[in-house]
Design a protein around this nucleic acid. Structure first.
Lengths: 251, 251
DNA sequence: TTCGATTTGTTCGTATGTATT
DNA sequence: TAATACATACGAACAAATCGA
């Protein structure tokens, strides 16, 4: 059974890994759009000619990675970048009292520039390649708390402009996903403490001599492909960064 | 089967959750010590009078939570707090070049004191209860980078003293686990930027006017019971905090 | 070194329960 | 109500890794 597909595959992979890869390929190709249901387990079992248990095991992993979402009685869906999902998995700033709140985003500038090494390296693109550069201020409870500097390769977001970015309906990653078919599935963040640059300090209503949290984020889509680089400055007078792996997994 | 215990339990629990709870109870009770193998799947299936698949599903979740560890052909083991595990899941400070290294710990002080609200609250104990208070400096590549202030309830660590803590063989959580049967399985960290107190600045070889990273950690054992509170100051001149959910899960 | 027992890993199949439409 | 889809549970067979005789 397993050996019937082979197809020039060197390393032996269990069947369910093969199935997982094929499902992932369909996701990358955009065959199943975000928010839509993928074919039912029994249909996939038929298509791939494997048992339903093997399909389940493949989907299990994609669900664990939050790429797919299962709902009993309804189906299996491609995860959407809703505000809830962002708040939970991609936005880590919380009030010192533990309050979680989705920020209001205010765009300050939008530019198309050539990538310097500080952006080209984390994005894995050539120096001098075109990137879009967006500056945002994030407000919590009406007050500015985070200053974001976002960089994305222009090649991945062909027609992006200030209007499209500024007048999007939902979250930023929701825009990437809905308009460009780019699905951010993982982020990596590196944090340090430093004095904020004058511009950031001013925007965040703090003195440039007050310590701020600097976050350098790289967002990845499938196959660990970087798609966004983001440098954030956070005023931690009343907020902090929460790193709480696992909290709300299982139970 | 599931309904025989009930005990005022409204919500229906699937069998495998029941099995998972019973396995967890055995772990809490110390029936199976860390590093040891738990009974084989077929034996557990016999003991609990459920199918082997149900046992597998229960163990699957405990493995995902890194409480158990499976090895084909050998058995299923209670995870041990080795240095590797600490480096990977509980120590998040890395060099700015991405280098990961286990720190050298140097104890500065060890005291038994009454818990103030700042420690009693996160630890979920009464104000005034006895706690041990340990101060450490962590060195990376021979140079001090982190200043740790650790607080643990004395009630949980009966005979702990300076010698036991200072002359332990492995990691701190390894000591908790091996000597007191307390297994740290999850941590929650809240980060902010601030000027370090004079003592910390001095120890870390930085000026008190240089921003430092402050980390407040709570470590939990089974059932979300807090067992340790830790406040750390990090000199982020050459190091940073890495928050990289998922990176090395699956593949 | 080989062999056999043990243990987990993978795959298949079936039946039934529960949630949704 | 009926059909559909995922969730749970059972069982069986074989593969792959480990370990000791």
């Amino acid at each position: 059974m397993a050996n019937t597909l082979a197809a020039g595959n060197l390393t032996f992979n269990p069947l369910y890994k093969e199935v997982k890869m094929r499902i992932t390929r369909s996701l990358v190709a955009g065959e199943w759009k975000s928010g839509e249901a993928i074919p039912s387990e029994s249909r996939l079992a038929g298509q791939f000619n494997v048992s339903i248990g093997t399909i389940r095991k493949a989907i299990d992993e994609l669900v664990a990675e939050r790429i797919l979402l299962r709902q009993q009685g309804r189906g299996t869906f491609v995860a959407t970048h809703t505000e809830d999902r962002t708040l939970f998995y991609f936005f880590h700033i919380v009030g010192k009292d533990g309050s979680r709140e989705l920020p209001m985003t205010e765009m300050l500038s939008f530019r198309k520039v050539k990538a310097g090494p500080e952006h080209a390296t984390p994005l894995g693109i050539a120096r001098g390649a075109k990137i879009f550069n967006v500056q945002n201020v994030l407000k919590l409870a009406g007050k500015p708390v985070v200053f974001d500097q976002i960089s994305v390769p222009a090649a991945l977001f062909p027609d992006l402009d200030e209007d499209i970015f500024g007048k999007r309906a939902g979250t930023i990653y929701g825009l990437y996903q809905a308009r460009y078919g780019i699905n951010v599935i993982r982020i990596s963040e590196r944090l340090s403490a430093a004095n904020p640059p004058a511009e950031a300090a001013c925007l965040l209503g703090m003195r440039a001599t007050t310590p701020a949290l600097m976050i350098r984020r790289v967002a990845y889509t499938y196959n660990d492909t970087p798609v966004e680089h983001r440098v954030s400055w956070v005023n931690t007078a009343n907020h902090e960064y929460l790193s709480d792996l696992w909290k709300n997994e299982m139970r």
